[in-house]
């Protein structure tokens, strides 16, 4: 990965073209969300409500808020199960 500038992701802009994503998982979860919206499985506006709620809880962990907001919405809609996600994340962690 390319390093962000020394002042971190919340640093003021000094030029155009800075990174939007700090890690690939962030770009993946973003694109996954948009693909789900495109496919009509969720509405962006419904997702946005969860994103706002998560950001209010964790004001400076944007992509964590994004990811949690998406998972909450998908669980609520019965499209995935939180325990399944926990189990798979545990397996991923063990493989690393």
């Amino acid at each position: 990965m390319i390093d962000l500038d020394a002042d971190g992701p919340a640093a003021p802009p000094r030029s155009n073209g800075e990174l939007v994503f700090e890690h690939p998982w962030q770009s993946r979860i973003f694109a996954t969300t948009m693909a789900l919206c495109d496919g009509g499985l969720i509405l962006y506006e419904d997702f946005r409500e969860r994103l706002i709620a998560e950001i209010a809880h964790h004001p400076d962990e944007y992509w964590h808020s994004w990811s949690e907001g998406l998972e909450d919405l998908l669980v609520e809609r019965g499209l995935c199960d939180a325990d399944d996600v926990t189990e798979r994340a545990r397996r991923f962690a063990e493989h690393d």
């Binding site: 993946r28 499985l41 998908l74 995935c80 798979r88």
Partner: peptide, 28 residues
């Protein structure tokens, strides 16, 4: 842990056919 959880979520969605990995790449 949140990154792993996001990856786990993506992987489950793909496995269930709810989202196409090629579509994710195209969107990005």
């Amino acid at each position: 842990p949140r990154a792993l959880r996001a990856e786990a979520l993506e992987s489950i969605l793909i496995e269930r056919g709810l989202v196409d990995p090629a579509r994710i790449d195209a969107v990005l």
